[in-house]
Design a protein around this nucleic acid. Structure first.
Length: 428
RNA sequence: GGAGAGGUGGCCGAGCGGCUGAAGGCGCUCCCCUGCUAAGGGAGUAUGGGUGUUAAAUCCCAUCGAGGGUUCGAAUCCCUCCCUCUCCGCCA
């Protein structure tokens, strides 16, 4: 959520910057709602003040044994007037709230212009895509070829956009999670957390998924309103909701492994083959909660942490800066890390690292207190995947495939694989 | 699933219709005193919003788990929901 004061004071320039994101701010609507709110709120608060003063007078008069009929009549008149305008103010305020909650974050000045992912800016590349002396297969052919990846069973059990992994592939999936958690917690200074996978709507509002993007979520059919998390970002970032953190305790750095559930409504026909786009996938998520002036530094750092994983796995990748049009609702700036997939002959997103500045913090009421300042200040939140497990698995299957159909296990995973160095069909 | 108890400021804990944004204690901050330590004295110590301002102050509104209701007036009474705790049952 943006600062209302920003809209009150410089709505024109806000509107201009939001255009970079392709969002048209309805200035007239805001000004109209806001001016009505202002006059009405002043009226209502004045009436409430009168009521409070008179009610106190009644108390005193009664205590003194005086007659209170006259004041009673006065105050009931005030109450009547209040009844007429109070509801109107409430409606207005909730309209303003809704209006505000649907405005996306303002892109950072360094964000390139553009409307789609084609306009994203490549920042750097790491690693050389391997030359293959045989015909490259995609991860589906590789995985099914060695009988470790089973989409038919998944379709039977749950439907499309699910996968079943077997034996050593299931183990490698688990190994990746362990490897990433260990790296981030032991080498990068993150605190590991285990969190709920079902969350309430307040949490989703806090990180920006609600109210605008309910269609992307799986809602649990229960009298309680709960949703399956679309990303670990939701529960982890909500750790600081309604908290005031001593500035000496910042930055908070969390790493968490969670499954993620996405309805993928609206992406019919996209990436239908394989496990690139699933309803359920695992992710290791990095979240940092920092002081306002540290967030861009934190973003670069966190991006580096995510890159480290790919470097250790020796998977070629590139980093792109998302253009305005491709930027998410809550993000001020996002870097995507794209891993090289020989099966597709292109780089595909495997991590997305974003700075939300105070956009989530304002919704979350997540603040910090500096001893020298009396008022608490909003923190900044930064997060990124470190990394998406399913897509990492895909990248390994494709980049480490061999001519005989087997797959070499990246060296860094050996300790997690019980000595297995190659994935191949188990013929026993 | 059944039966109870409870949710008040950073923490503990009073209040149970008006003078309580909230006693008292602890903690914390600043000041005084004390040669150090310990003890003592004084002041301060929630958050959001509105008004206003270059900025502030002032003033006002709201908040005692959440949302409704009763009342001139609610932390206090009523209703619904959420959460925590105890006991029984069941269960990974």
């Amino acid at each position: 959520m943006l600062d209302v004061k920003l809209l009150r004071n410089e709505i024109e320039s806000v509107a201009e910057r939001l255009l970079i994101k392709g969002f048209k701010l309805d200035i007239e609507k805001f000004n109209d709602l806001e001016s009505r709110r202002k006059s009405l709120q002043v009226t209502v608060e004045d009436l409430k003040n009168q009521r409070n003063v008179k009610s106190k007078a009644i108390g005193k008069a009664k205590a003194a044994g005086d007659d209170v009929e006259a004041i009673l009549a006065e105050v009931s008149k005030v109450g009547e007037q209040l009844g007429n305008v109070e509801g109107e103010l409430q409606t207005l305020q909730s309209q303003l709230e809704t209006f505000l909650s649907e405005i996306p974050n303002i892109p950072h000045e360094s964000v390139p212009a553009g409307v789609s992912e084609d306009d994203n800016e490549e920042l750097r590349r790491w690693g050389e895509p391997r030359e293959f002396s045989f015909e490259v297969r995609d991860h589906v052919d590789v995985g099914e070829g060695i009988k470790l990846l089973d989409f038919d069973s998944a379709a039977k059990i749950a439907g499309s956009r699910f996968a079943v992994l077997k034996q050593d592939l299931a183990r490698m999936h688990r190994a990746l999670i362990q490897f990433m958690l260990d790296t981030h917690s032991e080498s990068h200074g993150y605190d590991e957390v285990y969190v709920p996978y079902l969350v309430n709507s307040a949490s989703l509002y806090g990180t920006g998924q609600l109210p605008k993007f309910e269609a992307d979520l799986f809602k649990v059919n229960d009298e309680r309103t709960l949703y399956l998390i679309p990303t670990g970002e939701v529960p982890v970032t909500n750790l600081v909701r309604d908290e005031i953190i001593a500035v000496k305790d910042l930055p908070l750095k969390y790493v968490s492994h969670t499954p993620c559930f996405r309805s993928e409504a609206g992406s019919y026909g996209r990436d239908t083959r394989g496990m690139i786009r699933q309803h359920q996938f695992e992710k290791v998520e990095l979240v940092q909660v920092v002081e306002a002036d540290q967030s861009y530094q934190a973003l670069e750092q966190l991006l580096g942490h995510a890159e480290t994983i790919l470097q250790k796995l020796e998977l070629p990748y590139r980093v792109v800066t998302l253009c305005g049009g491709d930027l998410g609702f809550s993000s001020a700036k996002t870097y995507d890390i794209e891993v090289w997939l020989p099966g597709q002959g292109k780089y595909r997103e495997i991590s997305s690292c974003s700075n939300f500045e105070d956009f989530q913090a304002r919704r979350l009421k997540a603040r910090c207190r500096k001893p020298e300042v009396k008022k608490p200040e909003l923190v900044h939140t930064v997060n990124g995947s470190g990394l998406a497990i399913g897509r990492t698995l895909v990248a390994i299957l494709e980049n480490y495939q061999q001519e005989d159909g087997s797959v070499v296990v990246p060296e860094v995973l050996h300790p997690y694989m019980g000595g297995k160095t190659v994935l191949k069909e188990n013929r026993d």
